[in-house]
Structure formats: C-alpha cells, structure tokens
C-alpha cells in the first residue's frame, strides 16, 4: 500500500482495522483465546517481537501478503488493533477438505 494512502487511512475517522461485530465479541469476552490474521504495513517480520511482547504468540509470518498469524487473548488483539501499523485484523477461520461425504 502506498504511503499517502496509509497516511489517509491512519487519519481517517472511518478507519476500521476490526469488524464491528468482532470488536463487540472480543470486548464482551476479553479473555477468550483467539486465532487471528493481522495485516500490517511493510514487512511483517519487523513486528513479530513487538506483537509477542503484547502477550500474543506469532504462529506464522507471511511475505506474499504482509501479515502475521497470531494466537492469544481477545484483549491483547484489541490493543493490537489500535496500533498505527496494523491495517486489519480478521479471524483465522477454519478450513476443511471439500469431499462430499454423502456422495462417496
């Protein structure tokens, strides 16, 4: 993402790193253990240490898309969402094989 756009995103009152329903869910249960994917500005690996210092465990650091997979308490993720270098946080959702059990 280009720097002017990032700057605009930081200043914009509509900047939303976290979906509203997810924020409400985490605020309601701050001790819940959560898996999440955190998209960041610039290279992802530069943030691994600071994220760990916030009480989260970094599971993966990605390069194709600057992001990190983390696991930790919802409260820590809410604090992370407030960091200016965080672009977006989403749930690390479940995936599964696409075999049709009924047809086989």
């Amino acid at each position: 993402m280009n720097p002017p756009l990032m700057d605009w995103l930081r200043r914009s009152p509509r900047r939303q790193t976290l979906a509203a329903d997810l924020r409400r869910q985490w605020e309601a249960d701050p001790q819940a253990l959560v898996r999440a994917i955190v998209r960041v500005e610039g290279e992802a690996n530069q943030y691994a240490t600071v994220i760990e210092s916030m009480g989260l465990r970094v599971r993966h650091t990605f390069t194709l898309m600057p992001a990190l997979a983390v696991i930790g308490e919802a409260a820590a993720l809410l604090r992370l969402a407030a960091q200016p270098w965080v672009i977006a946080i989403e749930l690390d959702r479940a995936v599964h094989t696409t075999t049709d059990e009924e047809a086989s």
Partner: peptide
Amino acid sequence: SGFMSDVMAGVEWAVQQGARVINLSL
C-alpha cells in the same frame, strides 16, 4: 480440517519451492 493461516503458510512454501501449480481442494 485446519486454519486459513496454515493454508497461507503452505501456499507461501509452495511458491518458495518453485511450484508452477498449487492445488487447493479445501
């Protein structure tokens, strides 16, 4: 079953290993 982040890691690894095609039956 698994998590999106593990699939992302697998996709990155495949690219680094020189795959020309990646199959995601998931």
